[in-house]
């Protein structure tokens, strides 16, 4: 009954170079504007704040001056074997067959939050209240992503709407919609990052940057031992950062290259 790891022709994935992230939050700002995430009066309670893309500050656990810090942006991992999809009672979320993006159909969602309880990455967010755009902020709503009412779960979709729009653009220009260039479909966070820390593309397409990067000896994924097979890879040349990507017993070695494509 446990979900199988699904393989598709395309596999949209992300590679985040942690050695280049300054934690500035430009990606988070872009994400919100792109996806019509409603603002909140107070977002200091991070357990109630909608951050489809959340930036963690990691520590190597040592004292000053040996201490080292790294910022880790965490979008939805778009797991190959998602914890959330199997558990949804109403099929409001599914592993998309067109690139393996885990969708969230908010009009179907009944808000039981079982998917949130299942996700070890906390990538899912519940609309505790109705969204509110004070003043004229609703004027800035993008037509590409629907607004969500209270009582439903939402999450990062790898800006799936951009993929749909890119395909339509290709059709309108008599091009093959399934053979678009890497640059035609980029997530909002990836294109925004001033440091170029976020790469996005088809993990299976050798022409795409993420394909090679995901096979780097410095690549790792979060909580890989759970078997979720995330489609988001992280890169760091620092061993302690890679080790923080998963739970290890003290006597276990880490830092081995991961090749699981």
């Amino acid at each position: 009954m446990a979900g199988e790891i699904k393989e598709f022709e395309r596999k949209w994935g992300m590679v985040i170079d942690l050695d280049k992230c300054t934690g500035c939050g430009a990606c988070v700002m872009s994400c919100q504007a792109e996806n019509n995430v409603a603002p909140q009066d107070d977002a200091t309670n991070k357990l109630r704040a909608h951050t489809w893309l959340f930036i963690y500050r990691l520590s190597n656990g040592k004292q000053y001056p040996e201490h080292s810090t790294v910022y880790l942006p965490r979008p939805c991992m778009q797991c190959g074997k998602p914890t959330c999809v199997e558990v949804c009672p109403v099929i409001a979320t599914e592993k998309g067959e067109d690139g393996g993006i885990v969708s969230q159909v908010t009009p179907r969602c009944i808000g039981c939050r079982y998917c949130m309880a299942s996700c070890p990455y906390h990538a899912r967010y519940f609309n505790w209240f109705d969204p509110h755009w004070p003043g004229d902020l609703a004027e800035a709503l993008s037509p590409d992503v629907s607004t969500r009412p209270r009582g439903v779960v939402e999450k990062c979709t790898f800006c799936h709407h951009r993929w749909m729009l890119a395909k339509d653009k290709a059709i309108a220009n008599n091009e093959d919609p399934l053979a678009i260039a890497e640059s035609e479909y980029q997530t909002s966070c990836a294109e925004t990052c001033p440091n170029g820390a976020i790469y996005f593309g088809d993990l299976k397409n050798p022409d795409h940057k993420v394909h090679q990067l995901s096979q780097s000896p410095f690549a790792f994924r979060l909580l890989e031992r759970l078997g979720t097979e995330p489609q988001v890879y992280y890169l760091s040349k620092r061993e302690w950062v890679r080790r923080l990507g998963d739970n290890y017993l003290d006597d276990e070695k880490t830092g081995q290259p991961l090749r699981k494509l």
């Binding site: 009954m1 979900g3 199997e86 558990v87 949804c88 009672p89 109403v90 099929i91 179907r108 969602c109 009944i110 808000g111 039981c112 939050r113 079982y114 519940f126 609309n127 009412p149 209270r150 009582g151 439903v152 779960v153």
Partner: peptide, 26 residues
Amino acid sequence: LDIGQPLRSWFGYWYPNSHSMLTEVI
């Protein structure tokens, strides 16, 4: 009370996900 969209609760019967334990429970 616990689900966010009680008016959609019938989706549980009408669009059941046979893989979900919760569907069985419902």
